[in-house]
Nucleic acid binder design. Structure first.
Lengths: 158, 158
DNA sequence: TGCAACAATTGCAAGCATGCAAACTGACCG
DNA sequence: CGGTCAGTTTGCATGCTTGCAATTGTTGCA
């Protein structure tokens, strides 16, 4: 790699960090309203349920890296808030399935939609050429970065 | 805007969301080690101190959107962990200044550096052409997005 | 039928964040 | 010098998360 390349790299790292702050801002704004209703750990539960569907208690607890006892009480709170419901498993009577209520789904959808809209708004402030360039660039970036695991995102409450 | 443009937009929104997940992964990984030592709200305090320098108790509390009484006890915990220290103000003897210890600074620096390195690693997996394209695209994106306020990022613990 | 494993919950306990009200010390002013 | 205000800390209380140990109910197997 030439010196010029290295210089460009440092620059690109800085630019990427700046852009990442902007994107984090979008994410943060999209969840902030939901956080008036539920806590961050609670919201994570809703996210998992929204993306993976209804799930057995123990499995869900494992996904959240939580001990079942802890988790049971978190679910208590989500149930009393009306965000999820406990239903009996068709498999076995000792299993309990957790399912989003329509209220819970609406909360998650609202966040997703808010995020989508804000990104669309940002893109609309760019020229078509810029958008096209961004599209290509982000595809290769995402490819190089790889998908983060759910466990990793969990740290940030996502 | 033409129909083609709208189609491209939807695509770009999706791509941007994917890229934002990748970036969130980077951020999450960079802080996860620090979160073994301090809590997220505590880490936010360290971040603010690192970027804005030592600060008066009340001011810092205001920045964190916290009531002084709450905040005083958060600082207690950070002090006993050795991350920050209370020093007397040269201005007035009733003011208390909070300052990062070298330990606290090291913690923040480590996270920052980790993040920087990982982004550099991702960029190194892209071709020079791709990097160059990304650089330009992200500049225009960041411009269109604008800088998020500290208050917004605070939601995510950043 | 009875016993062992499984799934979830409850009892008990700790730590952190949060807020309101009160106390305390230092600064400032008349 | 006494009163008032500013800045911080403590008293008291609540809620959420977390974990370990014990309990309840269910299943499956011997």
């Amino acid at each position: 790699m030439s010196l010029d390349d290295e210089y460009a790299d440092r620059n690109t790292v800085a630019t990427t960090l700046t852009a990442s702050r902007a994107l984090l801002g979008v994410v943060a704004r999209s969840v902030s309203k939901a956080l008036e209703s539920v806590s961050m750990p609670q919201f994570r539960v809703l996210i998992v349920l929204a993306s993976s569907g209804p799930m057995r208690m123990g499995l869900l607890a494992e996904r959240m890296n939580a001990v079942p006892s802890t988790f049971s009480r978190s679910i208590d709170r989500l149930v009393s808030g009306g965000w999820v419901e406990r239903i009996e498993s068709p498999e076995s009577r000792r299993e309990v399935i957790i399912r989003l209520t329509s209220l819970g789904r609406a909360l998650v959808d609202d966040v997703t939609e808010r995020r989508r809209q804000e990104i669309a708004a940002i893109l609309s402030r760019m020229s078509s050429d810029e958008r096209a360039a961004l599209q290509g660039a982000l595809v290769s970036f995402a490819e190089a970065a790889g998908e983060p695991t759910a466990e990793e995102l969990l740290v940030l409450g996502l």
